[in-house]
Design a protein around this nucleic acid. Structure first.
Lengths: 221, 221
DNA sequence: CGGCAAATCTTGCCAATGTCAACATGATGC
DNA sequence: GCATCATGTTGACATTGGCAAGATTTGCCG
């Protein structure tokens, strides 16, 4: 566990990783809107122009951080799914709770990913990370539906509504806006979130009795 | 239609309103993260320090703008509700579509209100505006449920899930993330949004057949 | 082993920004 | 009329992001 990255060396050793850590800490401390490139440099104890050699500019650093955030985002969902029963619906609910858990544990990172113009969302690496997260969602929904979601209009609506509901809960939660949430009791709170997810995600389409494997599209398409 | 606010007068006449307009234009042009107080002053053709006499600092201006945004937000919902059938469920759906419409028409303002730390969310006027919007939501849900939403656990979950779903759709839409949305055809697009809303908002609680006026809470509470 | 090129980091600089202080101008009320 | 206050301007300063030039290290190649 030798730590060769002594503070007094001209060359840092692994400044790139250190800057990413510093950037996340800055984000956590001051939010996306208070993020400062020079603050990152100070935190990493390098000069203010050092980050440019690794990330170009502030946008480059935030883009790289957003891509890393996506992988952590997926990891959190995977962790939650491992702790759930293996049936597809429970897996989908677990993924949703993981989505929300990530947002609450990393609100600034969540906002960097989903509600900030500062990262370059056209960057190939960031696009790929986003795509992976989306594919994961589509896969979970498909498994829960027992159907290729892109196939039917209902499947597509299911993907959209699942994402919207979970994303809305996460976004409202990190701004303290989700109303009537049982305060303090984590178990009770998760129960309510879970109940909402189950009720909405597996709601039958209008005119049907129960959801589960959906049949064909409704007449009129 | 006389326009006494000539550009060459020392006193502007109604700089406060002009700065709010300028701020909204700046927001629309550069987003919350690119917002600049000096840019507002330039747009209003006053010196860079003039805004301070009306709003104190940048945060003050954005706080006032956020409060105004809330009233427009409510007005958009009210307009949509007027165009819908008077039954409570249609009214709730119309309010949701108005929520989404506002977000799409004013994405930067929407983000200023719901996803920015720059306004002072403890400001009394802004708090009151937010409270009004929330009360409106609770009222709409109560009417659709035929029940005081705070009364039952289901009512509370209904308020939370309604808000979360609509908010999630709005937030994903303005970042171009809501998947599988029929492109181009506005009517078809609204139909899909409406279908999602109806399916989720009026979904029966697990173990019941249909929603409409909900009965009491399920056993076990 | 020597030396040179590239990578990495620093210092110094510039324009833009937010905020403050000091001053100028106009409106209002007595 | 005139004093007072609101409104607006100018100037200054610290902070920030980015660029250029120089310093230090690493690595490669003969």
């Amino acid at each position: 566990m030798a730590r060769p990255t002594a503070k007094d060396r001209y060359h840092h050793g692994d400044l790139r990783a250190a800057l990413l850590d510093a950037a996340e800490a800055e984000l956590r401390a001051h939010g996306v809107e208070g993020f400062t490139l020079r603050g990152c440099a100070r935190r990493a104890e390098v000069s203010h122009a050092a980050p440019a050699h690794h990330f170009g500019d502030a946008r480059g650093l935030l883009t790289a951080l957003a891509a890393i955030g996506y992988t952590r985002f997926l990891a959190t969902q995977a962790r939650h799914k491992q702790g759930a029963t293996p049936d597809a619906q429970a897996q989908l609910v677990a993924a949703g709770l993981g989505y929300i858990d990530f947002a609450r544990a990393n609100p600034a990172l969540f906002r960097l990913i989903f509600a900030s113009d500062r990262p370059d969302h056209d960057n190939p690496a960031l696009c790929a990370a986003a795509r992976a997260a989306f594919d994961q969602l589509v896969g979970d929904v498909a498994a829960a539906l027992g159907d290729g979601p892109q196939a039917s209009a209902q499947g597509r609506a299911m993907v959209a509504s699942t994402w919207a509901l979970v994303h809305g809960m996460a976004d409202l939660l990190i701004t303290g806006r989700l109303p009537y949430l049982p305060q303090g009791d984590a178990a009770q709170e998760e129960a309510m979130l879970r109940e909402i997810l189950v009720r909405c995600l597996f709601a039958p389409p209008p005119g049907q009795t129960r959801a589960a494997p959906l049949a064909a599209s409704p007449p009129g398409t």
